[in-house]
Amino acid sequence: MASILHLGNISVTDYRDRADIREFSVVERVCHLLGISAEDFKKSLLAPRIKAGRDWVTQAKSPTQVVASLDALAKTLYERNFAFLVERVNKAIDGHKSKDKLGFIGVLDIAGFEIFEVSEYKHKIKLAVLI
């Protein structure tokens, strides 16, 4: 999680129509947390190599493109970390092997939450009518 937060501290500047990193120490901090090479990360971020036919070409990125790449990386890291956490908690709970399957956690998106909330509301109305 710390690496995701530190990604937001990477400041991208414009240097002759190409992106550059203002403070390399921030990149070093992120890469240390991720366990990857800071130099390789910087090269891949600012000027990734892409395959064009049979050859590999280095493509310079604009600051806007680099910021978009950082945002996408942060989103992906967060998404995978969260999914891993949910899976680990469910495995830990499932270790008790309850027959009723009430021991699990789930994640609701906005639509799922609204459906859950409406069904709870309807359940409370039925109880009130019965009383």
Rank of each mutant, 00 (worst) to 15 (best):
L73F: 04
D100E: 02
E28P: 03
D55M: 12
D17Y: 13
V12T: 02
L45P: 02
K101Y: 04
H96E: 10
L5D: 07
A72L: 08
K122P: 09
F84Y: 14
I110Q: 15
A111H: 07
Q59K: 12
M1E: 01
K122W: 04
K122N: 13
M1L: 08
L130K: 15
D100W: 04
I125G: 02
I50N: 06
G103F: 06
D20R: 01
L102G: 07
A111F: 03
K126E: 14
V86K: 00
F116N: 01
A74F: 02
V57R: 01
I10H: 05
E117D: 07
T64E: 15
Q59G: 13
D40H: 11
L130M: 15
F24H: 03
D20W: 00
L130W: 14
F24C: 05
I21H: 00
L130D: 15
S25V: 12
I36G: 13
L70P: 08
L108M: 09
L45K: 00
P48N: 02
V30T: 06
P63W: 00
S25N: 12
S119E: 10
P63M: 00
D94W: 04
A60R: 09
S44I: 05
V67P: 07
L46W: 00
F41C: 02
L102W: 05
A68V: 13
Y78G: 03
R18F: 00
T64N: 15
V26W: 01
L7Y: 02
D17E: 10
A38M: 12
A128R: 06
A92K: 05
G95V: 05
R54M: 07
V26Q: 11
A2T: 07
L130G: 11
S44L: 04
N90A: 06
G35M: 03
Q65D: 10
I115F: 04
W56Q: 10
N81P: 03
L70R: 04
I115K: 01
V57L: 07
D55N: 12
R88K: 07
I21M: 04
S11Y: 07
K75M: 09
F41I: 02
L34N: 06
F104K: 04
Y15G: 09
I110D: 14
V66I: 02
H32S: 11
E39Y: 08
K122A: 12
L46Q: 06
M1G: 03
F113H: 08
E28G: 06
V57G: 09
D100A: 00
